[in-house]
């Protein structure tokens, strides 16, 4: 039943167009940040290709290269999209899959957090801290460019990141799942404590029917 209720809360959160838009935007922004952190989204006019842009280039042995690891949890790009002068997107399918998973979790976290707020009986702060769990994943790609990290964060932190690089993605995934569970639990609690009939809720009539006038 808990899973069913969780699913309904997720559905309810995503049914609201405004929340859906915010969640989608958050997910997209995160996906772009993730791809950028891997060095797969490059904004640099020096990175170019012979001839005109846009241009698409793929490696011939893309099936085997797709699973070649080049960093902590970073995989070999098998194609490049030279979108415009100075804007290049490298495509590594495994990384896109990981990025999409993380971005989806971010989107659901944002949607459920905002939903929990809307059903709260009193004004409360949004639980944005749950999204901090997404940050370690942004460091998974940085290990391929240690000097860059060292310049920004210092050599000691760069070395520390290298030593824990394999744990960064699992930590992010676990944090986001836990945070999502927490948000759903919070929304559910608010609904119950707000005297919304859980039976009504579970029956699918989930229009936030508070019993006002009590």
């Amino acid at each position: 039943m808990a899973l069913s209720v969780s699913g309904q809360i997720l559905a309810q959160a995503l049914r609201r167009s405004r929340l859906r838009l915010i969640a989608l935007a958050a997910g997209l922004v995160y996906l772009l940040l993730y791809v950028y952190s891997l060095g797969h989204l490059v904004i640099d006019r020096n990175v170019t290709v012979p001839g005109e842009t846009p241009a698409f280039v793929a490696v011939p042995d893309w099936t085997s290269k797709s699973f070649e690891r080049v960093g902590g949890v970073s995989f070999e790009p098998i194609a490049a999209l030279y979108l415009a002068p100075g804007l290049t997107l490298f495509i590594a399918p495994v990384n896109l899959l990981i990025g999409a998973t993380l971005a989806s979790l971010i989107a659901l976290n944002v949607a459920t957090a905002a939903y929990a707020l809307t059903v709260a009986r009193s004004c409360r702060r949004l639980p944005w801290t749950g999204l901090l769990g997404s940050l370690p994943a942004l460091l998974t790609g940085f290990v391929c460019c240690v000097p860059t990290v060292a310049l920004v964060l210092g050599a000691n932190l760069a070395l520390a990141i290298i030593s824990v690089q394999m744990f960064l993605l699992p930590v992010s995934l676990a944090s986001l799942v836990i945070s999502l569970g927490w948000n759903i639990r919070r929304a559910r609690k608010e609904l119950v404590e707000g005297s919304i009939s859980l039976s009504v809720f579970e029956s699918g009539n989930v229009g936030l029917q508070r019993r006002h006038g009590q």
Partner: peptide, 21 residues
């Protein structure tokens, strides 16, 4: 046989004002 950001150097530059590493 690989795709990389040829044209940029992730470590910095040997010339210019921003030489990085």
């Amino acid at each position: 046989g690989h795709l990389r950001g040829y044209g940029e150097d992730p470590y910095g530059a040997y010339a210019g004002s921003n030489q990085g590493y």
